[in-house]
């Protein structure tokens, strides 16, 4: 923590400058207050405050932009969360994967990333026998791996095959994404970034080097980019028939 000089030790001009700045800030705040909220301010949360149900984090995937051959989101996720292959693809952890959809009648092929859909009515949370699967107030579905017993009911319950089980000892995990043997894991929406006001790694990677098919934000904030796009464009849930109210929506499927 940087040390703030005490008010009474400041020279007179410095005190005057501070008073002026305080007044300016107060006036500006008042001018902004009626109906006008800065975008970043509306999303920021002090880290010492609990997450709020006034926010619901969500993702919109534009499948018309998602391209064949691109797996930047998958690579970014692996790098961000320290996910390494054990050389056994059937059992390696996958928090996000690319899926190919082909219309059986027309042969039309499209691609989309599949990840934890962060459902409002999450089947994984329903079936967890120990309460390790839970949904945070801001809509992020997580596994509390402190109490997960590794029974994998949640993996069976998930219609999206979004969860993975860690069956081997892991080494060199990254501090911001603890993972370990005997527990189930899935996409966390990069909760460590989101808590600090940033976007998930896949979204940043897709925007920086890829087609920019992923939009992330607070779906309950009418001023957010994702809320505006959801209001303007067609989007749907995968397996909407299950009425899970997913936090990930797809445009163009």
């Amino acid at each position: 923590m940087s040390k703030q000089p005490e008010e009474n030790t400041l020279a007179a001009p410095e005190r005057a400058r501070r008073r002026f700045l305080t007044q300016v800030a107060a006036v500006t705040g008042a001018a902004l207050a009626p109906g006008m909220v800065l975008f970043e301010v509306s999303q920021a949360r002090a880290l010492d405050q609990p997450v709020s149900g006034k926010v619901r984090w969500g993702m919109l995937v534009d499948t018309t932009k998602c391209t064949r051959g691109c797996d930047l989101c998958v690579k970014a996720c692996d790098k961000e969360n320290g996910i390494h292959s054990h050389g056994r693809p059937e059992t390696d952890s996958q928090w996000i994967r690319k899926i190919r959809l082909r219309d059986l009648h027309t042969g039309y092929v499209q691609f989309l990333p599949m990840l934890c859909q962060h459902c409002k009515y999450a089947p994984c949370v329903d079936v967890c026998p120990v309460g390790a699967s839970f949904r945070r107030a801001d809509g992020i579905v997580l596994v509390n791996r402190h109490i997960c017993i590794g029974c994998r009911y949640c993996m069976m319950a998930c219609p999206y095959k979004a969860r993975s089980f860690v069956s081997e000892p892991l080494h060199d995990q990254v501090p911001w994404s603890p993972r370990g043997m005997g527990t189930v894991e899935a996409c966390t929406f990069c909760v460590h970034r989101v808590d600090r006001g940033h976007k998930p790694a896949c979204v940043d990677a897709c925007a920086a080097d890829g087609p920019g098919a992923l939009v992330f934000g607070d779906m309950k904030d009418p001023g957010s980019k994702i809320a505006k796009m959801l209001a303007k464009e067609q989007s749907s849930e995968v397996r909407a028939d299950l009425k899970l109210d997913t936090g990930v929506r797809y445009h163009g499927i």
């Binding site: 930047l72 970014a76 790098k79 961000e80 911001w176 970034r193 006001g197 920086a208 080097d209």
Partner: peptide, 16 residues
Amino acid sequence: VGPNGGNPLPADAKPV
């Protein structure tokens, strides 16, 4: 990488 956000991939990571 990590809590401060950004693109975790190196700048030359372009899609195929």
